[in-house]
Amino acid sequence: MSIFWRLQNSPKGYPASYVFSNPHMIAFFLRHPARQALPCLLLLFALTSCDRVSSRMEITRTREISQYETKPKVGAYAQERFGDERLIWQTPEGWSQAERSQMRPVNLTFGPSREGECYLSLLPGGGGGVLANVNRWRKQMGQPEITEEELAKMPKKTLMGIEGTFVSIEGAYTSVGATESKPDHKMLGIVAAMGEAGLFVKMVGPKALVEANSQAFDQFVTTLRLRMPQGQ
């Protein structure tokens, strides 16, 4: 124990056990307050010092496994481990996967220099209803807002089993956060509401590219589905 080691190096050089076992020594320490302070100080520092960290370390600590602990699955593969199997889809030919995020659980790109993008997003709060979202998209494409009546007339498409409004807008695209708009773009998208939550698929790119990929869009949307994880 490091505490005792340090006490052995106390000012007088007495071993700690001697100090504590000899009543005279205790009396000595009590009578000479100045001498008592130092060992106390050392004792405190010794107690608080922590073990060193080096570049190679042995694992010494263990933990007892409880009989009530659920047994993990041995040999699980990566998708299983990260719960990445809830969304299933087929990436259309010629498309590739871009980095995914919480906002974009499915994020795909297409086109010769990947200038087209198509992604799924989900807003738990809904973001103000179908109309507000359609109009938000229209604004991004530099188009005027539409009314509830016009919305009702728009075509429908099914997204993950929910009927949504299909949107097709042409115009100059201003992406979120961008200051300049890109002319001659096209946006295809589906806005579906599921209770409070909103489910969106959105595809944007240069007009010609998007039109060439509109089949692929439909294919992507039809293959996109949710698989309930097992056991959880």
Binding site: V53, S54, S55, M57, E58, I59, R61, R63, E64
Partner: peptide, 24 residues
């Protein structure tokens, strides 16, 4: 019946670029 445990203070400093090897 037991698991080997590496405590947090032995790896929490290993930001990208730093590594440590553990053995038993």
């Amino acid at each position: 019946s037991t698991a080997m445990v590496i405590p947090m203070k032995h790896f929490a400093d290993l930001e990208p670029g730093r590594a440590r090897t553990f053995f038993a």
